[in-house]
Design a protein around this nucleic acid. Structure first.
Lengths: 143, 143
DNA sequence: CTTGACCCTCTAGTTGCTAGAGACATTAGG
DNA sequence: CCTAATGTCTCTAGCAACTAGAGGGTCAAG
């Protein structure tokens, strides 16, 4: 059995994060030692590594919760898992599209700035007036 | 003078957001009517539009605070404003790079999945084992 | 048996808002 | 002038996904 620190080390996840995952019900409550310390079986390592990897790929915790419960039912169709991954792909692409427009706008802003005084600073000017922009970005800044 | 609702409408910013900006010191406290309601001069509209536009371009509020105080000093050099915009550009590019790696990984994952049962689902399998990945992404998922 | 590294719970902070409760102000219509 | 509808006020709490810190208990080595 592993203590929480060894588990965290092995999976590359910080100790408070593991406790947080337990608190929100993403990981099951482990057994405790006589001194009330968490003790994890080897299998917990796989589960935690799965969570970490999914997080690294940008999956939100809600989606990971669904993926975990799917992975516990090996005989079911994997269509649901595919759908989750697909929607993650769609979200990722949307972010990229948005960020590329922002990148272009920032580049333009900086290229045009002659770096004099604030009163004729292109950066400040463009920020103050969307009409000076080449792109539309009148949406909320979605992360 | 404008009430907060008219200001918000004109600038495309929700009323609670304006109050929030005031609370964190991003916008100055306006005068009040006899009935304690906020009353804004026309100039507040420019300032709020500036904030909104900068947010749309992904600038964090801290950076916007700095940009606002720079724009109040028109005689100073605009090097500081440029530096802020540049670091925003760098951050934006870093996010794009990261998201493109994620996109590629998700595409690969989905292409390889034969869509059978969970037990041989490529999505679940890859999530459980980083070694199956084509890219490194062993960093925190930075938004 | 003591020391130091680990672990426990709990609260509060991060970013940038959004939602709601319960009360007061303003304004348009009759 | 009164009323009803809308707008505004303050305050608290919530979202994601953690992170940091306080103040204490536990465990294994020497």
């Amino acid at each position: 059995m592993l203590t929480i620190g060894k588990l965290g080390n092995a999976a590359g996840v910080k100790v408070p994060t593991i406790r947080y995952y337990e608190q929100i019900g993403l990981l099951p409550e482990p057994v405790r030692s006589t001194g009330n310390q968490r003790l994890y079986p080897r299998a917990a390592l796989d589960r935690l590594a799965f969570v970490r990897h999914a997080r690294e790929l940008g999956f939100p915790l809600d989606a990971i919760r669904d993926l975990l419960s799917l992975s516990d039912r090996p005989d079911q169709s994997c269509a649901a898992a595919d759908a989750i991954a697909k929607s993650q792909l769609v979200a990722t692409r949307a972010r990229i599209t948005r960020l590329r427009a922002l990148e272009a706008e920032l580049e333009r802003m900086l290229e045009q700035c002659a770096c004099g005084t604030i009163s004729d600073c292109r950066v400040i000017e463009v920020l103050g007036d969307h009409a000076l922009c080449a792109h539309e970005h009148r949406e909320a800044y979605i992360l």
